[in-house]
């Protein structure tokens, strides 16, 4: 497993909000199904003493840490409060911080990530769906029904596109070790390279599907950093330059980060790149035929 397993106690910030409450319910339903600990504490300043789906809510992260063994957190607070939430958790000693919140100003993200790094915490996101290790743990908002346990890791900058890929894999009988959405913003905490490093040490993961999109060059950096067999898909081949395609980070700027040159660089590095999502399962099978 990477980032957490059945035994990971999860804290949710923004526990009493609509999103927080809804997803505590779903995360704990999944935990119950797989026999995991799930969400053990919530935090909303000023709402300490309340309960959400039976989960106790505290005013501060430090208070929650006093009463529970917590290994990871999931953040559902509004954009303006997200940097503060990340820093509070890093300061309290949480080492894996998943930030679901979207529309965070980039300056806030850079500061929060710089601070978290100093405190030794890893930030996943922001603007991400979190992660799910089938049969072990769900931290975030991924629809658990699509997943199947297996040996393929999936890393993606997207949400629903990740589910599409997982759906294709599961239908083809290819299970997943961990599926992680690293976020659609220009600045994100854990990059492809960071996650690939963890997959490299994870005995459950034999191959990785890397789902990227236009903007930046984190996909290429990631592919170069690992020895794991990879299949890739890059969204945005038809994206026009200088237009943000939904994600704040999905933009071709100054002629850089376009899908075609990204795909060319990945292929040059020996990474097979699918031109349609529906081609991915067959390419993963090819990969296993070649290496196993």
């Amino acid at each position: 497993m990477i980032y957490g397993d059945k035994n990971t106690g999860i804290l949710v910030q923004g526990a009493t909000g609509r999103q927080g409450e809804f997803h505590i319910g779903l995360m704990n339903a999944y935990a119950k199904q797989v026999g995991g600990r799930g969400v053990v504490a919530g935090v909303t300043p000023g709402k300490g003493g309340q309960q959400v789906h039976g989960v106790p809510v505290y005013n501060t992260v430090k208070e929650a840490m006093k009463h529970h063994d917590i290994g990871a957190s999931v953040i559902f607070v509004p954009a303006g409060a997200a940097a503060d939430a990340i820093m509070e958790e890093a300061n309290a000693g949480i080492t894996t911080i998943v930030c679901i919140t979207e529309h965070m100003p980039v300056q806030d993200t850079m500061k929060a990530i710089a601070y978290a790094r100093m405190e030794g915490a890893s930030v996943i996101g922001p603007n991400c769906p979190g992660l799910l290790s089938p049969g072990e743990v769900k931290m975030g908002i991924m629809p658990a029904g699509l997943f199947m346990r297996g040996n393929v890791g999936v890393i993606s900058r997207s949400g629903t596109l990740t589910y599409e890929v997982v759906d294709e894999l599961t239908r083809a009988g290819i299970g997943q070790s961990t599926v992680i959405g690293i976020g659609g913003d220009p600045v994100i905490g854990q990059t492809f390279a960071d996650v690939l490093e963890r997959f490299g040490k994870d005995p459950e993961t034999k191959a990785v599907v890397l789902v990227g999109e236009v903007g930046g060059n984190l996909e290429e950096e990631g592919a170069k950093s690992t020895n794991l067999p990879i299949v890739s898909y890059i969204a945005g081949v038809s994206a026009p330059p200088d237009k943000r395609m939904g994600h704040a980070g999905a933009i071709v700027e100054g002629g850089e980060g376009d899908a075609k040159s990204k795909i060319a660089r990945l292929k040059k590095h020996g990474v097979p790149v699918a031109s349609r999502v529906s081609e991915i399962p067959e390419m993963v099978r090819e990969l296993f035929r070649g290496t196993c």
Binding site: G159, T160, L161, S238, G246, A259
Partner: peptide, 23 residues
């Protein structure tokens, strides 16, 4: 729904030889 899936839909339109009007 979702930026990635919508982008992938546009790409698929191009793949099959069509042209998208919007994202």
């Amino acid at each position: 729904n979702g930026a990635g899936l919508t982008m992938a839909t546009l790409d698929l339109i191009e793949f099959y030889g069509g042209n998208a009007a919007n994202f």
